[in-house]
């Protein structure tokens, strides 16, 4: 299903991280996975603001876990991709796939 809203690269990386992490997706693990996928350093602040934006769009949902001592008694904020988020990510992957196929047909980038 095609959607009107297209995802930015960073949004795609974050949604992919959520899919890869599954039940263990909270701020710190998402940040680590994003840095791994993006092959570079990203600030945790930009990860959180993007997750907030994705939540507003309805692509992600979040909830708070129990406070833990190793976090100074602070709760973890868990994230999960929604069905709409999965559809939008699939659409973005399809577009990326089309681009790769197109480039392969002409023998790659010069």
């Amino acid at each position: 299903m095609a959607t009107n809203d297209s995802l930015g690269t960073f949004e795609q990386i974050i949604l992919t991280s959520l899919v890869l992490l599954g039940e263990n997706a909270y701020g710190a693990t998402v940040h680590e996975k994003v840095e791994e996928l993006a092959e570079g350093s990203r600030s945790i602040g930009s990860v959180y603001t993007t997750l907030d934006r994705l939540e507003q769009k309805g692509y992600v949902k979040s909830w708070f876990g129990d406070p833990t001592p190793e976090r100074g008694g602070r709760a973890k904020r868990f994230f999960k991709i929604t069905a709409v988020g999965q559809r939008v990510l699939q659409q973005a992957m399809k577009v990326a796939d089309n681009m790769v196929t197109g480039l392969r047909e002409i023998g790659g980038l010069a």
Partner: peptide, 11 residues
């Protein structure tokens, strides 16, 4: 939300 972010950093 900031509590969660600071918790991640503290971890």
């Amino acid at each position: 939300n900031c509590d969660a972010l600071v918790g991640d950093l503290e971890e």
